[in-house]
Design a protein around this nucleic acid. Sequence first.
RNA 1: GGUUCCGUAGCUCAGCUGGAUAGAGCAACAGCCUUCUAAGCUGUGGGUCACGCGUUCGAAUCGCGUCGGAAUCACCA
Length: 576
Amino acid sequence: MTAEQFLSSMAAQAVEALYGVKADPSTLQVSVTRKDFEGDYTLVVFPLLRISRQAPAVTAQAIGEWLTANCPEVSGFNAVQGFLNISLSNVYWRETLQDVTADASFGTLPSTGRRIMVEFSSPNTNKPLHPGHIRNNLLGSSVSDLLKAAGNEVIKATLVNDRGVHICKSMYAWEKLFDGATPESTGIKGDHLVGDCYVAYAKLEKEHPEVIDDVHRMLVKWEEGDPAVRALWEKMNGWVFDGFDQTYKALGISFDRTYYEHDTYLLGKELVQKGLDSGVFVRDPDGSVWCDLTADGLDRKLLLRSDGTSVYMTQDLGTAERRFAEYALDSHIYVVGNEQDYHFKVLKLVLSKLGFGWADQIYHLSYGMVELPEGKMKSREGTVVDADDLIEKMYQEARATSEASGKLDGIPEEEKDRLYRMIGLGALKYFILKVDPKKTMLFDPKESIDFNGNTGPFIQYTHARICSILRKASESGLDAAVADESVLSPKEVRLVKLIASYPQKVAEAAEALSPAVLANFSYDLAKEFNQYYHETPVLKEQDATTLAMRLSLLGTIARTLRSAMGILGIELPERM
RNA sequence: GGUUCCGUAGCUCAGCUGGAUAGAGCAACAGCCUUCUAAGCUGUGGGUCACGCGUUCGAAUCGCGUCGGAAUCACCA
């Protein structure tokens, strides 16, 4: 139970004892006290005036007195107008610190028993990953870990878009213009080489629009299983997958299940028949099949072309049905940009019209576009900012900053390199994940590599600082422990209060599917610690009990930061 | 045109299930390293929370409208 919940229930008792009326729980609002006022938590008494029939200050005073008299955890209060500021006792905070320290699974919520599939990344094999893809990958991966921490079983899935006209375009360009070039012969990363083919094709088609007919013939051959076309397709896809694997590895991203569109693009056709039988779908005279959604405020949606081939929606209907059956899912989350809001609205609606009860367990985690300073990026015109370049640039920047400080002098090159990667990646991940997923965000490559202020490296640095102190303490044979005699300073109480709110933050973040909640929490905690650090010497403390308590507090802060940042996929170094 | 989302400091973002004087970072300026890591800390300046009306004891937060921006409405994916 959180302190807020505890005080809210105590306040309910107070109201009943004082006024003989049970207050509606929603009228007992307890929040953290603003920092310019004395107190830990604040009860807003305005909603209770109806019951007390007294002035705000009088009501606040009465409840404050009752709580102080009847609740040992409450050490004092002050009433400012309608705000009752409550202070909790030092004993309460000391016990809270003891509880958190002893709780090995602190921050991991009890099991919900729910199994959730999270689909993300779902790359197009024509295009190297750009910042929009990075946001998708980082969000998907982080939300998966977040849902795990919130007590769910999570299956990370991706659907590789490995077939279709667009792939044939790259294949066509490669055959015509690339003279047998391979990643090995050119030294170009596989996904980039194929991306170059796609760009080259776009240019070619502009000059010779008739080449599209050749591409369509190629697609027909692919569908017929023509050995030569299939062989080329497999070869080029192989290059792309090798390239993607490298990038995924660099980003620290993995999947439990990979689906390929060439396996799934025919799914959903049976559902079309089912819809026709039940009258949910209609067939037009030309043979095309539609679902009429005008009564729901949407348009008519095509589900089967007049030539009998399926569209993207058809496939999505089929894969959703298969996944819910295959994994007995309780829920399915699609991490896809908000440009596809309409698509997912239709998907859910059509599935529920088909009678699937799980249709309302489908969630579209609709994240905002990533904009670059020069305007929206267009991969067809060649990638403006590429994921691999970006990762490399962050690494270089981390190295430069670190070498300038000289703090890592004397440790092995290999270890340094690992740290540079950790820091560069931490900066990139934090920069993207600290923003509310729903919001359109601006990605300025110049600003993203800033390592000061509200950034990943700031939190990593804070962690390294703590580790440095703990290392020195350990070398001196000092132990960390919170004794019952320990007394916490106001700053220490603030830190414990923040730490104690962590499980609640995990729950909030999971509810909102927003890793940004944890990024902000981590920043607040790190900032609070740095202030504490500057005014409170730890290792020089003369009192052994206090010193041991501080070491314990530091260890708990470090652990909490590791947990929260771990959910964002960001590692924290022990030195930097 | 219909629908959906967005508009908070010069810039990037918090705050939004209604609560006290709207917060950080960056950028600018002024300080702090014989003392546990200065990737840090302290201070100064910077706001009509796009605008208007409404609901409320109380609105950045909720509702309606206006203006501005974005996305989407394909026999594309």
